[in-house]
Amino acid sequence: MGFKLLSKLLVYLTASIMAIASPLAFSVDSSGEYPTVSEIPVGEVRLYQIADGVWSHIATQSFDGAVYPSNGLIVRDGDELLLIDTAWGAKNTAALLAEIEKQIGLPVTRAVSTHFHDDRVGGVDVLRAAGVATYASPSTRRLAEVEGNEIPTHSLEGLSSSGDAVRFGPVELFYPGAAHSTDNLIVYVPSASVLYGGCAIYELSRTSAGNVADADLAEWPTSIERIQQHYPEAQFVIPGHGLPGGLDLLKHTTNVVKAHTNRSVVE
């Protein structure tokens, strides 16, 4: 069995187990497998329904001669939608809004960016022009300005110390501490036991640490421990890039980060 097929099978099995364990909360999309990078042309966006009122959005972007996937989250909030992270750029984010209108038909009224990198804030200006209120932590807003990236308009308070959590509509926002970046936030959907790890969490097929220019490698494993301790009931975990899975993604990420750190020390 090929690795790609095995990865998709694991996603399907995880979703099936969740649907059985929580039949009222989960209505997993039966329309197909989780979209992969090879299936999404740059400039297009796919939506994948995880649970009743919960979707991931998947886009792709060219970077350094390669094409990478990027995940975000959409959560229903009454007759409105909360968006977590842009679709990595203005063109993708405009396509995301169009796809949401086509498939869901509810307005996106608020959006949260989970850290300051372009795959999370690139497209904020498109959201703002569409009347979406954009939010991020003060740290993310400051770092985005320093980096020359787009800056969300509103500040999220109460997320300055490791372990801080605040309720934001249908989700809980959690600051686990520094990891992929010093400002990275985690998003949890309690009604569906869905954990969105953003770039602080890796997919299972990833074996290298990737972009760690703004990471705190020493603190990252401790931050992941905080996530595990705060959300032990999480059933569906979405990484910032690639295929979702279960809580095993947290341990896998820790292993990859520690291996990278150990290699760096040896070198």
Rank of each mutant, 00 (worst) to 15 (best):
E33Y: 08
K102F: 05
G43D: 09
K251G: 13
I224F: 05
Y34S: 08
A95E: 09
S31D: 10
E267H: 13
G245C: 04
D183Q: 02
A25L: 10
T254F: 15
K4Q: 07
G240L: 01
V108K: 00
Y68F: 15
T261V: 14
H154P: 04
T86H: 00
N211I: 09
L6G: 12
P23V: 11
H180K: 01
S70L: 03
Y48I: 15
E157D: 14
A95G: 07
V37W: 13
L10N: 15
A213C: 08
V75M: 02
S16N: 06
T60A: 12
V45E: 04
Q49I: 08
D214E: 09
A66T: 12
I201D: 04
I40S: 07
N255E: 13
Q61Y: 07
E203S: 07
P107I: 08
R141L: 10
A19T: 15
V121S: 01
S161M: 14
G105S: 11
L47S: 02
P170W: 01
A15W: 07
T253C: 01
L6F: 09
D214P: 07
G163M: 05
D77G: 08
N262C: 05
P244E: 02
L250D: 02
E101I: 06
A165Y: 14
V124F: 05
V112K: 03
E44M: 11
H57C: 01
D183A: 01
L204P: 05
N149G: 11
I84F: 12
D119W: 01
R128W: 07
A21E: 14
E145T: 12
P244Q: 04
D29C: 07
H241W: 01
A218M: 11
L81F: 00
A200Y: 06
D85M: 00
V124E: 04
S7Q: 10
V108E: 01
L195G: 00
I201Q: 00
P69I: 11
L83A: 02
K258D: 08
R226L: 09
A90L: 06
A19F: 15
N184Y: 04
N184S: 03
G123S: 04
T114M: 05
K8W: 14
G197F: 00
I186S: 03
T207W: 09
N184T: 03
A59S: 15
R46V: 09
E267N: 08
R110C: 05
S181T: 15
G197N: 05
L83N: 00
K91G: 15
T14G: 05
R76M: 10
G2K: 11
G78H: 11
S264R: 12
F236W: 14
L73H: 04
L143A: 08
L96C: 00
A192E: 10
I227F: 06
A21N: 15
A218P: 09
N184R: 01
W88D: 00
L159K: 00
Q228V: 13
I104A: 00
G240P: 04
V121Y: 01
S208W: 08
D216I: 08
V28I: 14
